[in-house]
Design a binder for these strands. Structure first.
Length: 255
DNA sequence: GCGACAG
DNA sequence: ATCTTGTCGC
C-alpha cells in the first residue's frame, strides 16, 4: 500500500491546472442569509490564467459516514452555491482505520459513489488530507489522481508536518503554512498545506481550532487555502463539505 | 523501545 | 469516525 501511495504521489500535480478561475469562486447562496460582514476577497493577480471555460464551476463535497462495517459515501455537487446533484453509495468495509492509509479504507465507497454521479465536478473537496501525508498521498490526492480531477483535502486535525506559527486561538481568516518535516517524503521545509482559521468566536474563553487544508491533485497549496476561504459558508467547514456531511448522516438515518 | 497518528 | 444531554457563550 505504501508503495502504491508513492506512485500516486509521483502522478499527483501540486500546481494549478483547473478548468476555472479560482478568483471567481464565491459563496453566492450564503451572501443573502449570512449575518457576518466579513467576505474573503481573492486577488486575481496572484492566480495564473485559467483554462478556457465560461460556465461556473461545479464543486463537489465528499464525505463518509459509517454503520458497523459499512461505509456510506455521499457526494453533493454545487454550482453557484446551488445543489445540482446528490448521490451516495454504500459498501462493506474491509480495511481498518490506520493513520496514513485512510484512502484504502474509504476509497472504495468513494469510487462507487462517483460512479453514480452524472455531472463532472471541476473540483472535489474531500474530508481528510491531501499532500499533508507521510508519502504525500492522502485521501484527496489518491482520489484526485484516480479520477484525474482537481481535488483538495480538508482535515480537522493535523496528520503530519509543522505549522510555521502556533495555531492557538487565531482570528477568523488567519492562515499559516504547514511545512514538511522529516516524516514527510519530500524536502524538509516544503509547504505541503495550510492551517486555516475558517471561523472564530469574536471574544470569550472558547475558541475554534483551525482546519488543515492541503492540495489533493492539480491544485497548489496557496490556491487550496484560497478556495477553502472562498467556499466559506459561515461555519467551520466549507459549504460543500457540510452538505455532504449532513447528507451522509441523512442516508445513515434512513436505514 | 517510545511517541505520533486524517477519519 | 461513532456513542450522546446538557450546557456554556454568543
Amino acid at each position: 500500500m505504501e508503495e502504491l501511495q508513492r506512485e500516486i504521489a509521483a502522478e499527483a500535480e501540486f500546481t494549478d491546472r483547473l478548468s476555472f478561475d479560482p478568483a471567481t469562486v464565491t459563496q453566492s447562496t450564503e451572501s443573502l442569509t449570512s449575518t457576518d460582514s466579513t467576505q474573503s476577497t481573492l486577488t486575481s493577480a496572484e492566480n495564473p490564467a485559467p483554462t478556457a471555460n465560461q460556465e461556473s464551476p461545479i464543486i463537489a463535497g465528499v464525505d463518509q459516514a459509517f454503520v458497523d462495517d459499512t461505509a456510506i459515501s455521499a457526494i453533493v455537487a454545487l454550482r453557484d452555491g446551488d445543489i445540482i446533484e446528490r448521490t451516495h453509495a454504500v459498501t462493506e468495509l474491509s480495511v481498518p482505520y490506520i493513520p496514513g492509509l485512510l484512502s484504502f479504507r474509504e476509497g472504495e465507497a468513494i469510487v462507487e459513489a462517483f460512479a453514480t454521479l452524472d455531472c463532472e465536478p471541476d473540483l472535489a473537496c474531500f474530508d481528510g488530507s491531501g499532500r499533508i501525508h507521510y508519502r504525500q498521498a492522502g485521501l484527496a490526492t489518491h482520489m484526485g489522481v484516480v479520477f484525474d480531477i482537481p481535488a483538495i483535502g480538508i482535515a480537522k486535525s493535523l496528520l503530519c508536518g509543522e505549522p510555521w506559527e502556533s495555531v492557538e486561538n487565531r482570528p477568523e481568516g488567519w492562515r499559516t503554512p504547514i511545512e514538511a518535516t522529516g516524516r514527510v517524503d519530500c524536502p524538509a521545509g516544503t509547504i505541503i498545506g495550510y492551517a486555516y482559521q475558517s471561523r472564530q468566536y469574536e471574544s470569550g474563553s472558547r475558541h475554534i481550532n483551525p482546519l488543515y487544508v492541503s492540495p489533493g491533485h492539480r491544485v497548489s497549496a496557496e490556491t487550496t487555502v484560497d478556495l477553502v476561504a472562498a467556499l466559506g459558508g459561515g461555519y467551520k467547514l466549507p459549504e460543500p463539505t457540510r452538505l455532504a456531511d449532513s447528507y451522509a448522516d441523512e442516508v445513515k438515518s434512513d436505514r
